[in-house]
Simulated assay, not measured.
Amino acid sequence: MGAIIIVGGTSGLGLAVAEHFVGQGREVVVTGRDPDRAKSIAAELGAAGGLGFDLSKPEQIAPALAELGAVDHVVLMAIERDANSVGAYDLTQALQLVTMKLVGYTEVVHALQDRLSEQGSVLVFGGLAKDRPYPGSTTVSTVNAGVLGLTRTLAVELAPIRVNSLHPGIVGDTPFWSDKPAEVLEGHRKVTLTGRLTATKDIVGAVAFLLENASANDVHLNLNGGIRW
Rank of each mutant, 00 (worst) to 15 (best):
T200S: 12
V207I: 05
Y105R: 08
Q96P: 00
D202Q: 06
V140F: 09
G205E: 13
P63E: 08
A47V: 02
H73D: 14
D54G: 02
V98P: 05
E67W: 02
P133W: 06
L210P: 10
A94V: 08
V124K: 04
G2C: 02
L154C: 11
N84D: 10
E59A: 14
F53Y: 13
P135R: 12
P135N: 12
A182P: 10
L150S: 07
V156D: 12
A16L: 04
F125W: 07
E27I: 00
N224T: 00
N222G: 08
P175A: 12
A70Q: 14
Q113E: 14
V122T: 09
V171M: 09
V29A: 05
T139P: 06
G9K: 01
Q93W: 01
V156S: 08
T151R: 05
V171G: 06
P58E: 11
E27A: 09
I61R: 03
A78Y: 01
L197T: 06
L13Y: 09
R189W: 07
G87E: 15
A129K: 03
E19Y: 00
A66G: 03
S40R: 15
L158K: 10
T151G: 01
V29N: 05
A62C: 03
G187W: 08
S40A: 15
A43T: 09
G127V: 02
D36A: 12
R228V: 10
S141H: 09
R162F: 07
G226L: 03
Q119A: 14
V109H: 13
A155M: 04
E80L: 12
A83W: 11
N213I: 01
D82Q: 13
T106L: 15
S117M: 02
V74R: 12
